[in-house]
Simulated assay, not measured.
Amino acid sequence: MTTAGYRTREGPDARGSAAPEAEVLGTDRPTGRTRSTNPSQPASPRQHDPRFTLNYFDPPADLQRHILALFHFEWNERDIVDRHPGALGQLFVTPHGSGSITFGDRRDIVDASPVVYPGFRLAAPFRIQGPWHAFGVSLSPLGWAALVGCPAHRFLDRFTRASELIGPEIDQLAASLVRQYRSGELSGEGACEALIRFIRPRLKAVPPPHEQLIEQTLAWLGSSLNPDLDRLFDQLAFSRRQAERLITQYFGLPPAALARKMRAVRAAELLAHPELSDEGAAEIAEAFHDQPHMIREIRRYCGYTPSQMRKADEPLFQTMLRMQNLEKPGSFRVIGR
């Protein structure tokens, strides 16, 4: 059999994931907003998991460059063990459930306090005592910079109390939203709307040249599975050294490391198609030296080889890996039961 253009043997590392749909992170310019792009394979019906529900809502039009999605999540089991890909930054609140998420040797607590982060280098395992409910927003690199105003690379791979970076008012708001949510006065969508009302007046201006650099970097990341570094630097109005410093500041990683991570995540997403097209297989094959290289990279950034992901009992991780973004304005998604 063949996988992604490579001749393979039957075995644990040779069969791609059988998840139902993949999405590749791209950008809709000039907004810089992420979109679903996979021209080599049309969308297929999603495989719902009965254990949880994940609802995505579009942000208001004036915030779509800063906020990629609003979300409300429910998983009503008692002991929940899964993994978070951390490809996008988030601000979120957990009105039900508590536990921890592990980043290497460090463990961060998950509770009702609002948390913010710009992303993870690697997928992070977590354990929650449920029922577990959460609501929040997914932040673009521009959104992180405008709301938090701190270099993203200083806060990678950690859950930071939002009050430390945004101010004590977020704790006051979250406490009120948690009370209303627990009493049934407030829906998940309503809680997301309240977060939007809080965020909008607190977004700070980002220097226009830096904003353009963010948009150009997003477009470059979305141009292929293995985008050319020289092409990026040729387009930017900064020296190579300045550009690397600014991209690290806004995206959390220097451009080469950022592209490497996104290549692995996107390849995993493409391999999640039950019927990968020849065009998609060729795109993956061109992005890696060979199949062992592809497997190593996906395992490094996602925690599993492609075949292991298919067998792993981590439904939220697999769903989030496939479902990074909203497809179009006005869309509404229900993932799960």
Rank of each mutant, 00 (worst) to 15 (best):
R260T: 15
S224R: 06
V178G: 01
G252N: 06
A219G: 13
T248Q: 10
T160D: 00
N226E: 13
A237Q: 09
G252P: 06
L186N: 12
P255R: 06
E164G: 01
L229E: 07
R197T: 11
I199C: 03
L253H: 06
A146V: 04
E189N: 12
R179S: 09
P255S: 13
L147Q: 01
E244H: 04
R182E: 14
S183V: 11
V148Q: 03
V178K: 01
V206Y: 04
T160G: 03
E215C: 14
L177T: 06
A256W: 14
F155R: 05
L147K: 02
R182G: 15
M262E: 15
I247W: 02
F198N: 04
L221Q: 13
C150A: 12
L246Y: 11
P227F: 08
L186E: 12
F155V: 07
I196H: 05
G143Y: 00
V148Y: 00
A162N: 08
L165N: 03
F233W: 10
R260P: 12
A174R: 00
P227I: 05
M262N: 12
H210L: 12
S224A: 15
R245F: 15
L258K: 14
P255N: 10
A175C: 07
A146N: 02
G188N: 05
T217Q: 10
G222R: 10
Q216E: 14
M262Q: 14
G184S: 11
S163A: 06
L232Y: 08
D228H: 09
K204W: 00
L147A: 03
L186C: 08
D228A: 10
P207L: 03
F233R: 07
L236A: 01
F159H: 02
S187Q: 06
R202I: 01
I199S: 01
G143V: 03
F238E: 07
A219F: 13
G252Y: 09
F251D: 12
P209G: 08
A191W: 15
G252I: 04
L213M: 14
D228E: 09
A174G: 07
R245Q: 10
T248E: 07
A256P: 13
L232G: 07
F155M: 09
E164A: 04
E193N: 10
V206K: 09
L246W: 08
R158E: 12
L173N: 01
L236D: 01
G188A: 12
E169W: 03
A205M: 13
L203Y: 00
Y181E: 08
P168M: 05
I247F: 02
Q212T: 14
C192S: 03
R158A: 15
G188L: 14
G222T: 08
E169G: 00
L165G: 00
R260W: 12
D234M: 11
L218H: 11
S163P: 06
H153L: 04
Q235Y: 02
T248R: 07
P208D: 08
A256D: 09
P141A: 01
A256C: 14
I196N: 04
P208A: 10
A162G: 05
K261R: 15
S183T: 09
L203N: 02
C150W: 05
L236V: 06
Q172N: 13
R202D: 06
R202E: 03
A259E: 07
R202H: 07
R197N: 10
A174C: 07
D228T: 13
L221G: 05
A243G: 11
A175N: 04
P208F: 15
G184M: 13
C192E: 01
Q235G: 04
R154Y: 12
I166A: 00
K204D: 05
I214Y: 00
A175S: 08
S187L: 06
I214L: 04
A146S: 09
